[in-house]
Design a protein around this nucleic acid. Structure first.
Length: 454
RNA sequence: GCCCCCUUCGUCUAGCCCGGUCAGGACACCUCGUUUUCACUGAGGUAACUGGGGUUCGAAUCCCCAAGGGGGCGCCA
């Protein structure tokens, strides 16, 4: 039995779009699920719009998302070259093959594929001119996602431009033949083009691969599919904002496919195991950044502590929240109480900055809330001070100190919480208060409370 | 204009193939709870089968039509 061979064939003419990433991902998942090969092929036939920087963006983003390719740029393979710009001889040869068979002809300096069927001149409303229509038989596609789709091409189409360069449809089919691609998994925007590709396979006398047309990703609101100008459309945006690649990848899987075990946030190994083309959805999905943030937060909170630290440390250093001298142990201590509340790495510096500096930011709204209902935070802290000066510096000891202060002044322990939180962190919210104080240490805690009182 | 695809809460979806549970879950939102007024967490809540015909004892589920949405129709990919 033959091995599955799938390919992702981006054109390095722009940035790495979220829709392209999802197409690549589904190909990659299918290859990994079936134990097949995932091939990366660069469709750079349009020299005008290509550049090495664009290629780097694609390769970097692919790697960031953890999609490794078995054949392609930088890894090679037996079916190369993997850049279409280096395969021009092959395309010439294949064009000649069609011409010799009488399947292609030259007109206006370009080469056209000849369809089979009766011909007649008809005025085309879309092209606004008289064209030769062909009454060709419909091409029948048994799509793995869509089911049976029938569509007829109705006129010959260009396969080689008059400037000598082959067009997308031609190189796509030739390379899929030569690279022995077994399954073509691509966006639904190619569904209508598939009849062209089937005509080409027919002309070459080659059995076409299986096709699976996956739904498109639509804008969050407004009409149409995600375009590169939409917020959240480019993978590099998530890299910059320190999203976890595994979370982005996980969310992308949820647009167009549903895990079978009922979980939404799950490890990639489980996704690979459950992924089936037949379960891919048929309808387009709207992109929802809030849900993606949720997946990111979920993933972040369940990360092993060491992994979380490995991600957080360089970012905290970069934002000058900590320097290299901060010990792994100290950082781990802080991160341990942070992680259970955190929702993004992006805001980690401001979220936990107060642990490492005395000049931490004070949230004015949080301060306003302290006094809103006639509260007197300074008075509360003066009442609290003697008790925490004397207590044992553990969660239990600090808690006992709050309770003792409450008992001594006929108050609830919680009356002291908000003032203590603000005095020590400048925030109205954040990690568990007792944890903050414990990790801050007695001296720092007392120092900040005294500073606030004065 | 022609062609192709799609249609369940605001959003992502389960259920549909093999008609018969208050149409289930998640995000968001709202309420309440929690030793903080929380970027955590717990319990609730609001909210959907696009419309119309047909088949059937019975339709989200099968069939037809319409409407709406998306895509394609280039010497772009």
């Amino acid at each position: 039995m033959s091995q599955v061979r799938v390919r992702f064939a981006p054109s390095p003419t722009g940035f790495f779009h979220i829709g392209s990433a999802r197409t690549a991902l589904f190909n990659w998942l299918y290859a990994r699920h079936t134990g097949g090969k995932f091939i990366l092929r660069i469709e750079d036939t349009d020299k005008e719009r290509n550049s090495p920087e664009f290629l780097k963006v694609i390769l970097d983003s692919m790697r960031w998302l953890g999609m490794d390719w078995d054949e392609g740029p930088e890894v090679g393979g037996n079916f190369g070259p993997y850049f279409q710009s280096e395969r021009t001889e092959l395309y010439q040869k294949k064009l000649k093959e069609l011409a010799d068979k009488g399947k292609a002809y030259e007109k206006d300096g370009a080469w056209w594929l000849r369809l089979e069927g009766a011909r007649s001149m008809v005025f085309d409303d879309h092209l606004k001119k008289e064209i030769e229509k062909v009454d060709a038989a419909p091409m029948v596609l048994n799509d793995l996602v869509r089911g049976r789709v029938e569509r007829a091409e109705d006129r010959d189409f260009v396969i080689f431009r008059s400037n000598g360069e082959p067009v997308f449809h031609f190189v796509n089919v030739v390379d899929d033949i030569e690279m022995q691609i077994t399954h073509v998994i691509r966006g639904e925007d190619h569904l209508s083009n598939t009849s062209k590709h089937l005509e080409l396979f027919k002309a070459f006398g080659v059995k076409p691969p299986e096709y699976a047309h996956i739904p498109l990703i639509l804008k969050t609101d407004g009409p149409g599919k995600m375009s590169k100008r939409d917020r959240g459309a480019l993978i590099e945006e998530y890299q910059q904002r320190h999203y976890l690649p595994s979370a982005v990848r996980n969310y992308l899987c949820l647009l167009g496919w549903t895990p079978t075990d009922g979980r939404e946030v799950l490890p990639i190994e489980d996704i690979i195991q459950q992924f089936e083309l037949s379960a891919v959805h048929q309808s387009n999905a709207r992109f929802d950044e809030r849900k993606m943030s949720h997946v990111n937060a979920q993933t972040l909170r369940t990360l092993p502590a060491a992994e979380f630290a490995a991600i957080a440390r360089p970012i905290l250093i970069q934002h000058k929240v900590i320097d290299e001298k901060v010990s792994p142990e100290r950082l781990a201590e802080v991160l341990a109480i942070i992680q259970e509340k955190v929702i993004s790495v992006e805001h980690l510096p401001e979220f936990m900055g107060f642990f490492f500096t005395e000049s931490f930011k004070k949230d004015e709204n949080a301060f306003a809330n302290l006094t809103k209902k006639g509260g007197d935070p300074a008075a509360r802290l003066r009442e609290l001070l003697p008790h925490i000066e004397a207590c044992e510096w553990t969660d239990a000891g600090i808690e006992a100190a709050f309770n003792a202060a409450a008992a001594a002044h006929q108050r609830k322990a919680t009356d002291f919480f908000a003032p203590a939180r603000f005095a020590t962190s400048g925030q109205g919210g954040g990690p568990h208060l007792l944890g903050i104080l414990r990790v801050l240490g007695r001296d720092t805690t007392l120092g900040r409370i005294k500073a606030f009182v004065n």
